[in-house]
Structures are given as C-alpha cells and as structure tokens.
Design a protein around this nucleic acid. Structure first.
Ligand SMILES: NC(=O)c1ccc[n+]([C@@H]2O[C@H](COP(=O)([O-])OP(=O)(O)OC[C@H]3O[C@@H](n4cnc5c(N)ncnc54)[C@H](O)[C@@H]3O)[C@@H](O)[C@H]2O)c1
Ligand SMILES: NC(=O)c1ccc[n+]([C@@H]2O[C@H](COP(=O)([O-])OP(=O)(O)OC[C@H]3O[C@@H](n4cnc5c(N)ncnc54)[C@H](O)[C@@H]3O)[C@@H](O)[C@H]2O)c1
Lengths: 215, 215
DNA sequence: CCCATGTTGTGAAAGCTTTCACAACCAATT
DNA sequence: AATTGGTTGTGAAAGCTTTCACAACATGGG
C-alpha cells in the first residue's frame, strides 16, 4: 500500500471525479469498470487513472478492471465522504442563501448545521429551518457544535476577521468565497472559490485563443 | 516579447491574482512594486512572479521594479479585462439569482445582458431589471445579442442540452456550475465551478492531514 | 494445459513547472 | 567615474506530474 508520497492537488481533484463517475456507474448497475472506461468518462488517460489509484492501494484485478461498488466505497473513504461533516456557513447573503438551499451537499454528507450573519435584521430569523446566529459568538458556537468545515460568504473586507475567529475555534477546513487571499496558520486547509478568476480565465482565452487550449 | 510558448493554466490564474493585487496597490497610490513585494502579497516566490510576467514581455526596470499602474493596465489587456464582455446566464435559480445580484462582475467588465430559464412562471418576469427569456430561443438570442460568455446554472441533467445550444450560437467561453462533465468541441473554453469538489478536497484534507499540506 | 486477449500496477522516460543563480542594468552617493 | 545596493529577465537545474511500456496476472476457449 503506497502510504508515503504526498498526494498532489490534481490527484485529489481527479479522485472526486472518479467518485462521481463511479456513483453513476453503480446506479447504472455496472459491476466492473476498466481504467480505460473510467478515463473516457472523465476525459483522462487510462495511465493517469491507474497511477492516481495506485497511490492508495491496488483496487483492481488484472485482466478484469475495478469492481465498481468496491472502488466507489474505497474512494469515498479516501475522500472522507463516507462520513458526515458538520458545516457552518458565515454570511447569509446572495451566495450564502443559495448554498443553504442546495440539497445536494447534505446528500453528500456535508450537513449545514449553523448559520451566522452580523445583520441584526437577519439574526434570529429562520432560514430554511435553520436559525441565523450572531457572528459575535462565532468561535464559541463553532466549538460547542463540533463544526469541522466552515464556509465564508461575507464581503471581502470582513473575511479575514471572520477567518481568524474560525481558526480560533480550531476548525481546520475553510471554503472561502470572498475574492481575497486569506491568511491561515499551517495545518488549516483553505480552498478558494473565486468566480471572478474563472471569468478572467475565460476572457483570457477569448483574447489569446492561440495560447489557451483545452478548457 | 515572448510570444511563442503556450501559457499554463496556473500562470493565467496567477495573472488574475497579480491583477487584483495591482488594482489595490494602485488604489493605495503605490507607484512601483517589486517582484518581491508582489510575491509576498500573493504568497508566491519573486522568481515565479518574474517568470510569469516574462512570458508576456519585459514590464519592469532593473533596480526599480514594476510601475504599478502600467503593469496593471498591461495585465488587464492580457487578461482581456480592459474591455467589456457580454454575458448571458442560463438557469435563474439559487445560484443564478446570486450571480445576477453580484455587482462586482459588472464593475470588472462582465456585463450580464441576458437571462434564460425554462420555467414558465419565471419567463417574462423582471429580475433585477433584466427580463428572463425562454431558453427555447437560446441559440438565436445569444447570436442576436453578441453574447461572448455564457454561465450555465441549470440542474446537471439539463446542462449538456443547454451547452449544446450555446455552442450552436458560436459562443466559445462557458462557465459551468452544474456538477457534470460537459462535452464541448475544440476551440470552446469551458471552466467548471464545482463546489462539491472543493468540499471533498477539504474532507480529504481532514481525513488525510499528513498527505495534504498547503490549502 | 496452452494460448490469445485483456487489464492492472509500476518503474522509467518524457514533459512541464518552479526555483535557482547570476549577468545586466538602474539610481544614488561619494 | 567608481562603488554600493537593489532589482529584473532568463538560461539552467531541480522538482513535480503525466505518459509510456511492459511484466504480471486473469479469463475463456480450444
Ligand atoms: N453573489 C455572487 O454571485 C458572488 C460571486 C462571487 C463572489 N462573491 C463573494 O461572496 C461573498 C458574498 O457575496 P454575496 O453576494 O452573497 O454578498 P451579500 O452582501 O449578499 O451577503 C453578505 C452577507 O454577509 C453578511 N456579513 C457581512 N459582514 C459580516 C460579518 N462580519 N460576519 C457575518 N456576516 C457578515 C451580510 O450581512 C450579508 O448577509 C462576497 O465576498 C462576494 O465578493 C459573490
Ligand atoms: N445552489 C447551490 O449552492 C449550488 C452549489 C453547487 C452547485 N450547484 C449547481 O448549480 C446548478 C443550479 O443550482 P441551483 O441551486 O441554482 O438550482 P435551482 O433549481 O435553484 O435553479 C435551476 C434553475 O434552472 C432552471 N432550469 C432548469 N432546466 C432548465 C433549462 N433546460 N433551461 C433553462 N433553465 C432551466 C430552473 O427553472 C431553475 O430556475 C445545479 O446544477 C446545481 O447542481 C448549485
């Protein structure tokens, strides 16, 4: 079992994609899948699929391929989506509200447990069955409720302060929607969802289409 | 002027980050900035900054650094954010509505011109000053209105059909929020915004914290 | 049992990206 | 004009990721 190398960002992202494909294959009652099939489904190469999986073990059978359900479960375990995670959301505005309404996260094990805002008109109100709390008590309430992942959806100016309070609660996984570079201590995982950057990437491709292949 | 190499995805993303930093530096009335400063602001290395910029030309002065405003304008040009882009949005649900309300895109030159949905209750209604059109006429209306970028925010099952209609209108830049692998012909730039994948990345880090450094 | 066909797992090669290191240059000071 | 201190631009080195290529194994049919 290859349990030594550091896993690259891109391998982790591809794991998510394999997982999604496998969930579908399982629904469609496929028993086995080859690296070739999986690669075609995700527009990758078979060698890449095999190499990615090989970092975590040998899940396939030579000549046959991978058992769909088993591989799906193995990857679920690796990705940590075989369990439930307590999620909190800070900033219940446009994006925040959209996220609360999104049922798919819960189905995948990401349970939105707490909502926070600093707007007195919103605090105390019920949003999709969850009461919005005062961000003033953020650190304490995150601790009290065993929150493991926090999503930041506040304006960029407030994001670092909110982030600091989250870190104080020993939460070590943060998803940030504010277009700003948050500083977090070592050991805290931070992912940024930056739509402006994606749009700029597209406009770059429109302007420089010769130098921008494969989207 | 280095106009030969293919530019990597990561260089383009970093260009967006330099741009954001430069806009701020300009606002704060800085005249020049060194690769060292720019690197510190974005948590990168000075060599990386210089190498990235060198793909597009020599914008700095040895001993002095880069002229902030000039470099900002140069990068704006490279990214294509020195001009306005006509954007359309398909699927005015949770995410779609959030995007329409977001003023920042317009400020950056991404002008949301058309909205589409297939829900008869929504079609014809006014959303933040823009009327929601019937997706049935998608291809024709994209053409008629010179739309250059389309954002897909419909359920995953409908995304490929919508995508095909967009491609038919010769739009070559698509931002997709549906968690599905869209197929687009060569020459069309497709970016995916997949929040589930980001959350899975975080849960991976929580489970395998030894193998997951730097978020 | 043997052979043909198919597929994995993995070292090694190729390709790509980042970092290093330094010549080339700029400005200020003496 | 020479020296000091600073910074860029870039070829080369190092590091990382992807692809290649093939031994090792599985199955099925003669
Ligand atoms: N709406 C979009 O489409 C979009 C797109 C890209 C990025 N973003 C980014 O996402 C973030 C949220 O955007 P939005 O459109 O939802 O904004 P919004 O103004 O609709 O919502 C922000 C919410 O955060 C709350 N808030 C402000 N300061 C707070 C604090 N200190 N603690 C807790 N809550 C606080 C506000 O009361 C509000 O409810 C912003 O950083 C924005 O730049 C939004
Ligand atoms: N809401 C979120 O936080 C979130 C998060 C991640 C991903 N997503 C993805 O973004 C997409 C949109 O999510 P949402 O929550 O806004 O969903 P939603 O159901 O609120 O909105 C979807 C909208 O698309 C419209 N629609 C459906 N089929 C259409 C078609 N063929 N043409 C045009 N319009 C059509 C619907 O009428 C609706 O208005 C989905 O693919 C979802 O998986 C959403």
């Amino acid at each position: 079992m290859g349990k030594l190398k550091r896993i690259s960002e891109s391998t982790i992202s591809r794991l998510s994609r394999y997982y999604r494909a496998l969930v579908q294959l399982d629904k469609d009652n496929y028993e086995t899948v080859s690296s070739k099939d999986l690669a075609r489904l995700e527009h990758l190469t078979p060698a890449q699929v095999r190499k990615d999986l090989s970092f975590f073990g040998s899940f396939g059978t030579r000549g046959l391929g991978y058992p769909v359900r088993e591989l799906k479960d193995k990857i679920a375990r690796i990705l940590g989506v075989d369990q439930e995670w307590n999620v909190a959301l800070v900033g219940i505005g446009n994006i925040g509200s959209a996220l609360v309404s999104y049922k798919e996260f819960s189905r995948q094990g990401f349970k939105i447990k707490l909502l926070f805002d600093n707007d007195q008109r919103k605090i105390g109100s019920n949003h999709k069955g969850i009461v919005i709390r005062d961000v003033a008590n953020l650190t304490q309430e995150l601790k009290d409720n065993n929150i493991e992942i926090v999503v930041i959806a506040v304006p960029p100016q407030q994001a670092q302060t909110v982030c600091d309070d989250i870190v104080k609660a020993d939460v070590s996984a943060i998803l940030n929607f504010a277009p700003i570079n948050l500083k977090v201590p070592k050991g805290v995982s931070l992912r940024n969802e930056n739509m402006a950057m994606e749009l700029e990437h597209l406009s770059f491709c429109l302007v420089n289409n010769d130098y921008c292949e494969e989207g």
